[in-house]
Each structure stands twice: as C-alpha cells, then as structure tokens.
Computed example of a mutant assay.
Amino acid sequence: MSQEPPALDPALGPVSLTRQLCDIASVSGDERAIADAVEAVLLERAPHLSVVRDGDTLIARTELGRERRVAIAGHLDTVPINANLPVRDELDAETGEAVIRGRGTVDMKAGVAVQLALAIELVEPAVDLTWIWYDHEEVSSDLNGLGRAQRNRPELFAADFAILGEPSNGTIEGGCNGTLRARVGVHGKRAHSARSWKGVNAIHRAGALLQRLAAYEAETVEVDGLAYREGLNAVRVGGGIAGNVIPDRCDVEVNYRFAPSKSAEEAVAFVREFFSDADEVEIVDLAPGARPGLDAPLAQRFVRAVGQTPVAKFGWTDVSRFSALGVPAVNFGPGDPQLAHADDERVPVAQIESSYAALRAWLSGDL
C-alpha cells in the first residue's frame, strides 16, 4: 500500500515552505518522498504548468509562447543527517538575525522553496519558465538526476538563460570552476626493509611530486570580469603493503580546480605536463567549468533585480550542465555556501525573503 506524500503548503510563503521541505528527509538515494510531495502540490495547485517526471526528477513548464525561456533548477537531496532534523528557528549567536537551522536549509532546500513558491504563484511570467527539481546531486555525477533527465528528455531543457538555486548568500555567483581528479602513480621496486638498498622506495620517490605541489601557487584568472581562483592539491596518498616491505608503488590523488576559460582538454594537458615525470597519470574524474553567463540582456536585468555585484563561483555546480548545452547559467540562492554540509547548517530568513523578492520581480517584469 503506497504512502501518501507529506503535504506542502506553498501559500504560506517560501520561509514556511523551507521548513516543510527540510523536514522531509531526503538523503541522496532516498528522494522519493520529497519528489512525491513536490509533484502532488504541482498537480494540485499549478494547472498552468505541464509536469514531467523522470525518476525522482520533476520538470514543470509554462507554454505561453513567450519570446524567451528561463530554466530554474534545484536539487532535492541532501548529505546525510546528523541529529539536525527537524529544523528549528533560532537567532544567530553572531549576527542576531533570525535563522532556520538544520540539514538542507542551506544546501539547498531554501532555494528549492523559493522556486516552488514562485512556480505555483507565477501564472503569467514575463518569460516562459522551466522549473526543475532533481535527485542525486550530492553523489557521483553519473547518478545526477539533472544529467539523466537531460539525456532522456533533451527537448525539455532548451532555454535562453538558466539559474541554479545553489546557496550564494543571496547574490549572483557566475558560472563555476571546472574540476579534475587524477591518480598520479609512482613506481618502485619491492624489497625486504632489512635490505632496503635492494629496492626502490616508491613513497620516497613521490616526495618530489608532493614538494612540487606544495610549492605550486594557484592562479587567479579573470573571465568576463569575474575572478576565478584556481587550485592544484593532493587530496589522498596511498602506498605500501606491509610494515617490513619497501613499497613498489605510491599513488597520489590530485584535484585540479581550473578557471572556466580553460577547456577540459586544456586542463588535462596541464596536469599531464605538471606530472610528466610520474610513471602514470590517470584522469579519474573530469567536469568542465562554465563561463559567468552574464553577457545576455536577460542576465544583466537579473543583476539589476538582485542589486548586488556578481562574484565568481569557485566550486563546481550543475550550471556546467546548462553551459554544455549552450545555455548561459548562474548560481543564485539563499544561504552561505561555506555552511553547506556543515552540521550547524543554517539559513537567514531575510535571505530567503530577499531572494524570493528579487526573483519574483525579475520574472514578473516589474523592473
């Protein structure tokens, strides 16, 4: 017997809706209940939207014949809960502002709440809208619901501009850095540690690579007026098989964050050249960045609606998936991205309200 989805009431506004959404546990892989709840409220209260479901991803679209279309997306899943649900209302000890504290408040159910409230409210927006709520963002990219739905139903994702509701402190973060992970292997020769001169210690050989990484100074690269900070870092080291054996292999896992002015191929070439003296360089994960997406008139009017100077997004986000489709995209949502995944995750109520107001004004054409 199927269970009724939890009831959502967008009429209470995005702040109350944030609490409701957060209290539906939706750790990656367990998004069915929240997807059911969002689908139920769309079908009940948004007859102006056509709704398509792909797994636990929902795509809701207006079909008003407007000249331009905007896609607005947010993910439904969170990282694991750690005694931080249900949410609670507090005054922040440092700022004194009203906050909602708990898992998902920042990453990113406050953004999802803003989107869902507006999706139901805006029956006659100034542009056609594609609203997207998707699963499996916090895990391996091959499981990502946005990517899956784009592959399955590409026709639903055509747009002139896109917004991802990732936390950005209520300002616009343009584009995103690309990310690459590589396994850099160094070989040696096994020997008994009592006769170490008979072998070649791969861990010792890897020391030169680690010293080079430690000395590397990351660049700041300006792209379309925004400054993107790059980074090249060892994130994991492994080697050795026993306490009395000289290791014949050492692997250093490296993460390279590169500015969106570089292509994925250029990033790979840089890493291979940087570690040209290694025995192996295997690229194990690669995702291109996205340029700021602020050149289009739609984006410029959005900047005016928000009223703050855009900044660069250092981390990788799913704006890259829109950029790969030729759709300029930005990040915009309530919450401090530095609190994402933290056990004391909390979002200021004022940021939820201001993000909602700016997005509503822009989409309504009240500028």
Rank of each mutant, 00 (worst) to 15 (best):
A264R: 02
E121N: 09
R53I: 02
A329T: 08
D295K: 12
T62F: 10
F274K: 12
D77F: 04
L76Q: 07
A312F: 09
I352E: 08
E273G: 10
F332I: 12
H204D: 14
R61Y: 10
R229F: 04
S28L: 06
L209V: 08
P80M: 06
V200N: 09
A71T: 03
A305W: 08
L118N: 08
G188W: 10
R304G: 04
E63R: 11
R32I: 08
S355F: 02
L213P: 00
A194C: 14
P288F: 10
R236D: 12
E282A: 13
V51A: 07
V327M: 12
M108R: 07
L143A: 15
N233M: 04
L76V: 13
E4V: 04
R249H: 11
P167H: 12
L156K: 05
R346I: 00
P167Q: 10
K313D: 03
A361E: 11
A342M: 06
A340K: 02
G175P: 03
D23F: 01
W131I: 05
V87M: 01
T317G: 11
L8F: 00
D277E: 15
V254Q: 00
E219F: 03
R205T: 02
D135C: 15
A126L: 07
V319P: 07
F275I: 07
A119K: 04
E121G: 03
N169R: 10
A361H: 02
D285W: 13
V200E: 11
S320V: 03
P328E: 05
A37R: 03
R183N: 04
W362H: 09
A149V: 12
M108V: 02
A158M: 02
T179K: 10
V235I: 15
G74W: 09
C250Q: 04
G225Y: 05
D336R: 05
G104I: 08
V27F: 01
A218S: 13
R272C: 01
L122W: 08
L116M: 04
R148F: 01
V123H: 06
A93I: 00
A117T: 15
S26Y: 09
A350L: 04
G239C: 07
S323F: 13
Y228R: 07
D224T: 03
G175L: 05
A60R: 09
T62K: 12
V38A: 01
A149H: 03
R190H: 14
D36M: 01
A259S: 15
V52D: 10
P328Y: 09
V268N: 11
Y356H: 12
G147C: 01
G13V: 08
A98K: 11
P247D: 14
I100P: 03
F274L: 09
R301Q: 13
Q300A: 11
A361T: 11
G165K: 05
S141A: 12
N177V: 12
A37W: 02
L42W: 10
D89V: 11
V99K: 00
F322A: 03
A361Q: 14
R321V: 08
F258T: 04
H187D: 12
V330M: 04
V15E: 00
V52Q: 06
V87P: 02
D89W: 09
G147Q: 14
A7W: 01
V281R: 06
E280G: 08
S276R: 14
A162Q: 03
G165D: 05
V271M: 10
E94I: 08
H75Q: 13
